[in-house]
């Protein structure tokens, strides 16, 4: 691991100031992506800005028609929260499938979404629920947030402070985990909120999380498994690696989307 200096700001403003001032600075939340990446020397930030001392960045509450989750909220808190289970159970289920229990005790939703790993679970929830990502500067709709592999709309000194997930009528997440890492080989999040239907896929796309508009259109006619029968996604645009070919991933997208709709309508 390369050497670094660390900072422990107590407000978001201080953290943003440090991000803007210090060269090669990185935010540290749960650390369960950044620390392994630093060990491999794939990242060598000169400054680490630890978010753990900032008050008010974690917590879960219902505000109006939204479920609001602080950026520093850990996966285990989302997975076990009675508020999440009551309002968007699919989101609690998704959080319970991330990594393993020890990882869920440390990893945070903000860290996961800011990192935008193409195989991470939370990006599918954000895009699949039409979440709004609230930063220290603005509100970013999830449709405008994810920009490709590990790329987001976040500016260099921009910090996610919370997520607003609209309450939906129906939703489910089904994941085919890589058996070693528990990352999604493919994961599909479906939701229905009135006439707004979303199908978001993580793990499969060579450009990160994406929506399947063809599936969404089919589900608008009738939100049921039968609407998706025979539908597939193009192999072109799927990622391909030792864990699964593009053809296999394209196949899984169809299978998991049908399973997700079945779970959402059960």
């Amino acid at each position: 691991m390369y050497e670094f200096k660390f900072h422990r700001p107590t407000t978001v403003r201080q953290a943003a100031g440090l991000l803007a001032r210090q060269e090669e600075a990185k935010l540290l939340a749960g650390g369960h992506t950044l620390i392994p990446t630093m060990k491999l020397r794939l990242a060598g930030p000169k400054h680490i800005i630890d978010m753990s001392q900032i008050e008010g960045l974690s917590g879960i509450e219902v505000k109006g028609r939204s479920l609001v989750i602080g950026a520093f909220t850990r996966h285990d808190e989302v997975a076990t929260s009675s508020i999440v289970k009551e309002n968007i159970p699919a989101l609690a289920e998704l959080a319970s499938l991330i990594g393993d229990p020890a990882v869920r005790h440390r990893g945070t939703i903000g860290g996961s979404v800011a990192n935008n790993d193409p195989n991470a679970d939370y990006p599918a929830a954000c895009l699949g629920l039409g979440a709004t990502i609230v930063t220290n500067k603005r509100r970013i709709p999830s449709d405008d947030f994810f920009k490709g592999l590990f790329e987001t709309a976040l500016e260099p000194d921009e910090i996610i402070v919370r997520f607003q997930f609209p309450k939906v009528n129906k939703a489910a997440y089904v994941k085919f985990p890589n058996p070693a890492s528990r990352f999604a080989l493919v994961g599909v999040f479906v939701s229905k909120r009135g006439s707004d239907i979303r199908v978001a896929v993580t793990g499969a796309g060579s450009n990160g999380v994406f929506r399947v508009t063809a599936f969404e259109e089919a589900l608008k006619k009738r939100f049921g498994v039968k609407s998706l029968e025979g539908l597939t996604v193009p192999v072109d645009g799927m990622s391909s690696d030792i864990h699964g070919s593009a053809e296999y991933r394209a196949h899984l997208v169809g299978v998991l989307a049908r399973r997700a709709v079945a779970a959402a309508t059960a």
Partner: peptide, 16 residues
């Protein structure tokens, strides 16, 4: 156990 919760000590800095 960190404050009563299982965690991976290889993925946590001592100062955290």
């Amino acid at each position: 156990h960190i404050d009563g919760k299982a965690a991976k000590s290889c993925t946590t800095f001592a100062w955290q």
